[in-house]
Simulated scan of single mutants.
Amino acid sequence: MEVYLDNNATTMVDPKVFEQMKPFFCETYGNPNSLHRFGAGTHPKMMEALDYLYSGINADDEDDIIITSNATESINTVIKGVWVDEILNGNKNHIITSEVEHPAVTAACKFLESQGVSVTYLPVNEAGVLEAQTVKQFIKEDTALVSIMWANNETGKLFPIEEIGQICKEAGVLFHSDATQAIGKVEVDVQKANVDFISFSAHKFHGPKGVGGTYMRNGVKLTPLLHGGEQMGGKRAGTVDVASMVGMGYAMHLATTPMALAYEDNHVRKLRDKLEDAILELPETVVIGGKENRTPNTTLISIRGVEGESMLWDLNQKGIGASTGSACASEDLEANPVMNAFGSDSELAHTGVRFSLSRFNTEEQIDYAIEVIVNAVKRLRNLSSSYAYAPETHKSGL
């Protein structure tokens, strides 16, 4: 049996989404910016896709949603655009983010630091969440942007976006949230959240890879990252990948209906909890960040005495896909930075394994995964020179 439990890295394209995309490869293939019928023929489905995107995040008709190649491009568009508009061409020189952001945010901020921008990296609390009042404490007169993720890609922890958004609004500071791991798992409402920007990627909610979006509140100025054409109203140059845009829109539609979100919150959560509870029955296992306030599909579990990479090897041999954290840093053998942010000791920082489910997982798959995981833990602990198997030391939770 093959069981895919790495859906925070990417998801399979929903077959219904794929069917919507097919005509735009060999039938309705015109450039949407061309004036002839071949180009114009793409417009109805592109407009439908935009309607789905706006509805999925409750964007206002006057707001902008810019189609990009992925969330990484979207994030760089926002952070570097604000750098140009508010810092290079303004009188501000400060950005606030957290210590547990996706590498796309962290790397963009590090680049700005190399250009002389002051960046504050705020710590999370013991539950793995950035407290809104911490953000408020660090906002200064020259703060140009606050960029805080909606949901953590490794722990699934949800951040207090609405509260942070209100704080930024009252302070007159632009607020960006990386919503990549939230859309399709929990409600993402840009009106309630008081965000100026969000970033997202279709392949995280059963859409195609290679397409994402940037939401931009009406009235907010943002210098484009890419120049060279008038596509997207001049906000993002380059011929639009119509098939991918249509696929992302329909994937958003399927993932964000009340029924779909209820399925995530009930069925997917139930399967995640079954898997998690079975692992926690083993001695010295712990859910990083605790069980509360998470997306319903994600768990990051530390298994003392079992190196994460070794566990992934055993699971892969049995047809199970999982990860040790962000896929964008999976080749880096350094200790997991999120676990370091929690203050984990040097041994535990290498033991985290992330399991992330989707609506396509079944109970039969979870039962099989539990059996394989339990056997793998026992085998690897028996091989470990630093772990003494002692059932009486059983721990669970934080």
Rank of each mutant, 00 (worst) to 15 (best):
R304Y: 14
E281K: 01
T285A: 00
S326I: 10
I320G: 05
T295E: 11
P283K: 01
P283M: 02
G321A: 13
R304S: 14
G325H: 03
S302F: 00
L271G: 04
S310W: 09
A278G: 02
V240Q: 08
T295V: 09
A322S: 06
D277L: 12
T285P: 00
E307N: 13
G233V: 05
L333K: 14
R294A: 09
T239G: 09
N336A: 08
N336I: 01
L280N: 01
H267S: 15
A251K: 12
T298E: 10
H227Y: 08
T257M: 11
T295C: 12
T298R: 08
L282G: 00
A329R: 13
I288S: 08
V286K: 05
S244C: 09
A335E: 14
G234H: 04
V287K: 03
P258H: 06
G238K: 00
E264G: 06
E307S: 12
L261S: 10
S302Y: 00
M245A: 08
T256K: 10
D273M: 09
Y250W: 04
V268R: 02
A278K: 01
D277C: 09
P258K: 04
G305M: 01
T299W: 07
A278C: 06
R294P: 11
L226G: 06
I288T: 13
M232E: 12
S323K: 11
T295W: 08
M252S: 11
L312A: 06
A327E: 12
H267W: 11
L300Q: 13
T324M: 12
S244G: 13
T295M: 08
E334V: 15
N297D: 07
Y263A: 14
E230A: 14
E307V: 10
G229V: 12
A262R: 05
Y263F: 14
